[in-house]
Design a protein around this nucleic acid. Structure first.
Length: 920
RNA sequence: GCGGACGUGGCGGAAUGGUAGACGCAACGGACUUAAAAUCCGUUGGGAGUAAUCCCGUCUGGGUUCGAGUCCCAGCGUCCGCACCA
């Protein structure tokens, strides 16, 4: 083909892409061997839920991963780049209910459809390692690990509050409860206590927190979100004696948690959660209190109510004794803002230094006494009215703490209370039975003097051999991970309940505990629960009548270890082959959405630790590098009637600066709305299939990488796609023309100025793209490739007007470089161009071009010259010119002479290779 | 409320404290064409000037520096996360 004839032709992306995909496939070039001795690189994108169709977010995510995979391969790594399916979950069951399709059938059909779509993108995936979490060959190992975790003490059963939908007879996740009603049934959601299987992630709170510091290739934002989620706080557990004359069942004490023990002398009240045992006990004898507690529970469901709820309390009549003064009695309130889940579910309130407590006392007229005085304030006049003071300062109104700093006061209180003692709790008399932590009461140091000593106060009941009044404690916000779901389409929890033997693990030989296929969804509730032949089994231990656990696992469990399974998905005996997993892991680059910043990533980090403990792998962290990509967003359109319109049905015209939209079919005017995340409800989606059919996968891939930094949202526009498509065509023509240039096979000894310019442009692009791909700055890679292509276009012009062997050789060399540079982003086009340049190999298996660093160094450099910080001139000097030479050259410039007006400069700053600044 | 990020042409965005606006999109002018599309060439932050040139300009106001889009302080605005966590 001649250059002339190719100019008039077009690159047929559709035909070429299918052809090259077939070529890659037939040579299995993306299949990765576990015994490959080259340095390993594991790149992984978050695997998709098989909804049935990929969306543009997938295109962006998987393109980024593919660029990294192809680049690392060219750099000589053995690259693991697998793909699978997060295939369990509710949509399959919804489809079963709505459309009478079996979840399994629906899921596998979706997988087949989506796989085809992904394959049309030309991703360099090792499909031989494909896994689907709903497949028994996958969840079998998950069940095995559940049993291993159970044995290792990482799993427990716990009575927990859950959102219960009485119509659908199922537990709802928090996000499925909308305004206190079930999202599907619309029924008012109840709080129910159910036995739940729980992974003890909180055993690792400290470890998961401190190890965040080692994740230096994670976004700071994600680490911070996890840190806040884990929510470490240091404080003191303090036992307050109760006035038994006021307690319902002669309870003797109330244990609280505080991070501000320094403010103990500012205490005005105690508050306990509505579901605190002491509140329950008091409510049993006080109908008004019981009614108040009911009221709190009702408000407690919807998020909005919690946001706006006023502080409410109810005085139980119970009185607590101040730990430093038994004569100081504090009222015990039940309050709606106290959480049973955190600390001990009880607090002491110091209104002057805590806004919530201040709001509370202001409502109930309990007053406040400031005990911390800000520096520079007169303690005699310092008062708090509406805004609590939580800053630094000196202790006041606090007896023996007066004058201390907050830190000193905290330490002093802790020391005194740790070393004073109260009788150990009598059974059944604790105000917070079961919520006390770590106070054993025995084998402790001998009794110490009471803290009341020397304060002139009377001590409450003294006893020897007692437990300390207070104990330092670290608290975490992170709660254990409840994994029980009352659903069919999930991994069965492999245990059996026997009346005699209790909870019995399913024998390993019986794994997988398979989901039965013969289920119906015509009735609400979990089909497993009403499947007698599946549910009723013999106890493996006593052979008596028993029943299977009918709950299945949270789908976050499935995705907490898939990255490990990919390392050896062929192992039928175990979840992993530890030696193989340890070699591949951690994932070097993980790419996915920010929406998984907390749960998925935290669960996976926990799972990695649990798998290490149970011998399935031996690494510390699953993901060494994490990248969170932005969303794909699009303009919205709606008719004057307010109906949303798909972009495909809208015609946009530009009249001068203004853009006008009409309905393509009828010409009816359409309003252009805000740019938002692509969503079905606003119909502002673009179907990847349509784009690939119209422009090809390379165009879609290129556009997804252009312009916007990859961690930010990218706006999908028709103009943008067309720009990308034009560039695809332009590259094809450009390389086609270079392919027809007659060039010597031997490298010329000398290069003309024009040839050197081309070579410099190509090698500069090579250096820049190499650097930017490694840092995932794809938008900058795109810019460098544009620049390189522009330079080569100029080169074509030069060789046409004045052909010469060195110029021709430089063009061929630069063409070879350019094709390999854009190959990771547009692999099909790159293969087509590689062939056009006369190569017989696949560019996908080619090495990354070698950089000739000498070409990046100029013989002379042009430095900007500033006068008083403003650029006024340029000066060109030899590369190795000394500071004095540069200064002399600068001072000789006309512009500088004029500015100095005969005077000598105050100062001349020469920054080598950078800039010169003359201070006049 | 707490925590975090960000703020640059008409738009998306470049810019180790060192020439602000790379690269792309859009727009405008021109070439080719019977015409259009495609393609190619050129212009494009604002203002003044015939011109060389000059002045202004990175949300606002201060500061540090020879030099600030970049660092510090205060304010305004947008976005995100958590949300009564004691």
């Amino acid at each position: 083909m001649t250059a002339e004839s190719q100019k008039n032709e077009r690159y047929n992306a559709r035909e070429a892409e299918a052809r090259w995909q077939k070529a890659w496939d037939s040579q299995a070039i993306f299949a990765t061997k576990n015994d490959d001795p080259r340095p390993k690189y594991y790149v992984l994108e978050m695997f998709p839920y098989p909804s049935g169709r990929i969306h543009m977010g997938h295109v962006r995510n998987y393109t980024m991963g593919d660029v990294v995979a192809r680049f690392k391969r060219a750099m000589g790594h053995s690259v693991l780049h697998p793909m699978g399916w997060d295939a369990f979950g509710m949509p399959a069951e919804n489809a079963a209910i709505d459309r009478k399709v079996h979840p399994k059938e629906w899921t596998y059909a979706n997988i087949a459809a989506m796989k085809k779509q992904l394959q049309s993108m030309g991703l360099s995936l090792d499909w031989a390692r494909e896994v689907a979490t709903c497949d028994p060959s996958y969840y079998k190992h998950q069940q095995r690990m559940f049993l291993d975790f159970l044995k290792a003490g990482l799993v427990k059963r716990e009575y927990r509050k859950v959102n219960w939908d009485p119509v659908d007879q199922t537990v709802l996740a928090n996000e499925q409860v909308i305004d206190g009603r079930g999202w599907r049934s619309g029924a008012v959601v109840e709080q129910r206590d159910l036995y739940q299987w729980v992974f003890k992630i909180s055993d690792y709170s400290e470890e998961l927190l401190s190890a965040l510091d080692t994740l230096d290739r994670w976004p700071e934002k994600v680490r911070l979100m996890q840190k806040n989620w884990i929510g470490r706080s240091e404080g003191l557990l303090v036992r307050f004696m109760l006035d038994t004359a006021t307690t319902p069942n002669e309870e003797t004490e109330l244990e609280i948690f505080t991070t501000r023990p320094d403010t103990l002398f500012g205490a005005k009240f105690m508050a306990i959660a509505p579901d605190h045992p002491l509140a329950q006990a008091a409510a049993a004898k006080d109908a008004k209190l019981a009614a108040f507690i009911e009221e709190c529970k009702r408000i407690g469901t919807s998020q909005e109510a919690i946001d706006t709820a006023e502080k409410m309390g109810f005085d139980t009549g119970i009185r607590a004794l101040h730990p430093f003064d038994a004569n100081w009695k504090l009222p015990v309130y039940v309050a709606n803002f106290i959480l049973m889940d955190y600390g001990t579910g009880a607090i002491f309130g110091c209104p002057a230094h805590d806004q919530r407590d201040l709001d509370f006392v202001n409502k109930y007229g309990l007053g406040n006494t400031p005990v911390v005085c800000p520096e520079g304030q007169d303690p005699a006049t310092f008062v708090v009215t509406d805004v609590a003071y939580d800053g630094d300062g000196r202790m006041i109104n606090s007896r023996f703490l007066d004058g201390m700093s907050i830190a000193q006061a905290k330490e002093e209180v802790a020391k005194r209370l740790e070393n004073s003692f109260l009788p150990p709790l009598g059974k059944g008399r604790s105000a917070a039975e079961g919520r006390r932590v770590g106070i054993s009461g025995d084998d402790r140091s001998p009794p110490q003097p009471s803290p009341f000593q020397g304060e002139g106060a009377q001590a409450p009941a003294q006893a020897s051999n007692n437990a300390p009044v207070a104990q330092r404690q670290v608290n975490y916000r992170l709660r254990d991970w409840g994994i029980s779901r009352q659903r069919y389409w999930g991994c069965p929890i492999p245990v059996i309940h026997c009346e005699k033997c209790g909870v019995v693990p399913a024998p390993l030989a019986d794994l997988p505990v398979k989901l039965p296929d013969d289920v119906t969804f015509d009735k609400p509730g979990n089909p497993l629960d009403r499947h007698p032949t599946w549910k009723n089994v013999k106890c493996p231990r006593c052979s008596g009548a028993a029943r299977r656990e009918t709950d299945t696992m949270d789908t976050f469990v499935d995705s907490s270890w898939y990255f490990a399974r990919f390392t050896d998905p062929w192992n039928e005996a175990s979840p992993t082959t530890p030696a193989v997993a340890n070699r591949w892991l951690p994932v070097d680059q993980y790419i996915g959405g920010i929406e998984h910043a907390i749960l998925h990533l935290l669960y996976s980090r926990f799972f990695t630790r649990a798998m290490k403990k149970t011998g399935h792998l031996n690494i510390d962290e699953p993901f060494a590098g994490l990248f969170t990509q932005g969303m794909v967003v699009h303009e919205t359109y709606r008719t004057q009637k307010g109906e949303w319109v798909e972009p495909a049905n809208v015609k946009i015209e530009t009249v001068g600066e203004a853009r006008r939209a009409t309905l393509a079919a009828t010409g009816e005017p359409v309003e252009i709305g805000s740019i938002e995340k692509m969503s079905k409800s606003k119909k502002n989606t673009v179907d990847p299939d349509d784009i690939i059919a119209a422009y090809g996968a390379d165009t879609a891939r290129w556009f997804m990488l252009s312009d916007s930094p990859p961690d930010r949202d990218v706006i999908w526009t028709e103009e943008g796609v067309q720009g990308a498509w034009r560039f695809v065509q332009r590259l094809w023509r450009l390389i086609g023309e270079i392919g027809t240039v007659e060039a010597p096979t031997e490298r010329p000894a000398q290069f003309s100025e024009a040839a050197l310019a081309i070579r410099k442009a190509a090698h500069k692009a090579l250096a820049n793209v190499s650097d930017d791909i490694g840092k995932l700055r794809f938008n900058r890679c795109v810019a460098h490739i544009y620049e390189c292509a522009n330079a080569l276009s100029d080169g074509i012009g030069a060789v046409e007007s004045a052909p010469s062997p060195d110029l021709a050789w430089a063009l061929r060399e630069s063409g070879d470089i350019l094709v390999r540079l854009f190959h990771p982003m547009m692999p099909h086009l790159a293969e087509e161009c590689w062939a056009a340049l006369g190569h017989k190999t696949l560019v996908a298996t080619e090495a990354w071009p070698a950089l000739e660093a000498a070409l990046l160094v100029e013989d002379t450099i042009t430095l900007p010259v500033q006068i008083n910080g403003r650029k006024r001139a340029d000066v060109t000097v030899p590369r190795d010119a000394g500071k004095a030479d540069i200064e002399a050259a600068v001072l000789a410039l006309d512009t500088v002479q004029k500015a100095l007006d005969g005077k000598s400069p105050k100062k001349v700053i020469v920054v080598p290779q950078r800039i010169v600044n003359v201070v006049a």
